[in-house]
Computed example of a mutant assay.
Amino acid sequence: MRSRALALPMAAVLALSACTGALSDTGSLLGRDTLRIGVKADQPGLGLRGPSGEFTGFDVDVALDIAERLGVEPADVEFVEVTSAEREEALREGRVDMVVATYSITPARKTEVTFAGPYYVAHQDILVRADERSIDDVRDLAGRRLCQGEGSNSATRVIGERGVAARLIEAPTYSECVTMLEEGEVDAVSTDDLILAGFLLRSRDAFRIVNAPFTDEKYGVGVAEGDLSGCEAVNRAITDMYQDGTAEALLRMWFGDTGLDLVTSVPQFEGCS
């Protein structure tokens, strides 16, 4: 494992608040001296922007590790905040070179983005208030107010795929969903367990995770559509990250106290296509 990895959460890497511009002439993220990487800014434990503009979290550390394995030093990485709804657009417009932002690989998204990875396989679960005892399974969401972050697929997993008649409420981000949950405006938030675990760590007394996972969510690294060489290089970086122990160390550092069953072996890749 690289000695740098465990120091990554202390790194202060400033965001580009208004970065625009196209990709390089090659159309690939390979051979660059700098990289612009899209990350979340409001997800504790994954991608969170601090008061002075620095980003921290598992996704941030994964992004920095991949960049270094591609030959780009942490000081030459600039992070750009992206929401779930704007990840494809940010890549398409060249505002970012890649996206590492709890970006689940789906057939629909693969028509717009080339995905490397996954770098982790999460599982959709349910977050409720700590005193809520009537929701213990996805079926218990029938008739309940379920919050989803805009641009997410989580409600589709519940309502469309499992036929559970939850009452969908959308918010711009999952952090706003969690605020609505705490204030009693919704009954549950359902999304990937790593996302929920981050919010749980921030407010242990306010919430609980139902711990009844019901999907596999393959977190991919989004690169520009058609950048196969860049995708393949990122896959090699992810493999090395797992084989040298960096991935396990980062997972345990960020989520070791959550009780989640963390998977520390190399995920099965989707293939660059």
Rank of each mutant, 00 (worst) to 15 (best):
Q124L: 04
D193I: 09
E161P: 06
V113A: 00
L196I: 06
L228M: 02
D261A: 12
F79G: 02
T114S: 02
F255E: 07
S175P: 00
L30T: 03
D193S: 15
S104L: 07
G21W: 13
E132A: 06
D140K: 05
G27C: 02
E73Q: 08
A5T: 10
T106G: 08
R208Y: 04
E232D: 08
L194R: 13
G117F: 11
V263F: 05
L262C: 00
S203Q: 15
E88V: 08
E225F: 06
G57N: 15
L70A: 04
V113R: 06
D125I: 03
T258F: 13
R109Y: 08
S203K: 15
P118T: 00
S229R: 14
E54S: 04
G151E: 08
V263L: 05
T20I: 01
T111C: 10
Y219D: 06
R36H: 04
R36G: 01
S229L: 12
E170D: 00
R87S: 01
R145T: 03
L262F: 07
G256V: 04
L194V: 05
E112Q: 15
L64Q: 14
F58E: 11
E132N: 05
T179K: 12
V72T: 00
V60S: 09
A90L: 11
E183N: 09
L16G: 14
D137A: 03
F255H: 06
V221S: 05
S190K: 03
E81W: 03
D33E: 03
T173R: 13
V113C: 02
G271S: 10
G259Q: 07
T246C: 01
V39R: 11
I37M: 04
R87N: 01
S265C: 10
G31T: 11
V96W: 15
L127Y: 03
R49W: 02
T83A: 06
G57I: 12
P44F: 02
G220R: 11
A63R: 15
A249R: 10
A75W: 07
D140P: 01
H123F: 04
T111L: 14
S134T: 15
F214L: 08
R204A: 10
T34N: 07
L48D: 03
R36T: 02
R109W: 12
E225G: 03
V80L: 09
D42Q: 12
A130H: 10
P267L: 06
A188R: 07
E112H: 11
T156W: 15
C177G: 09
E232P: 02
L70V: 00
R36E: 01
T156C: 03
V138K: 11
L141D: 08
A15N: 12
C147E: 06
A85T: 04
T102Q: 11
V13S: 09
P267R: 11
D261F: 07
P213N: 11
G259M: 07
L16K: 12
T102M: 09
E182D: 08
R204N: 03
D136H: 15
S52T: 08
L196N: 10
D136G: 14
M180I: 04
E248H: 05
I126F: 02
G230M: 01
E112S: 12
E150C: 03
G38S: 04
E93W: 01
G57V: 13
G31L: 13
P74F: 00
A90D: 14
A18S: 10
T239N: 07
I126G: 00
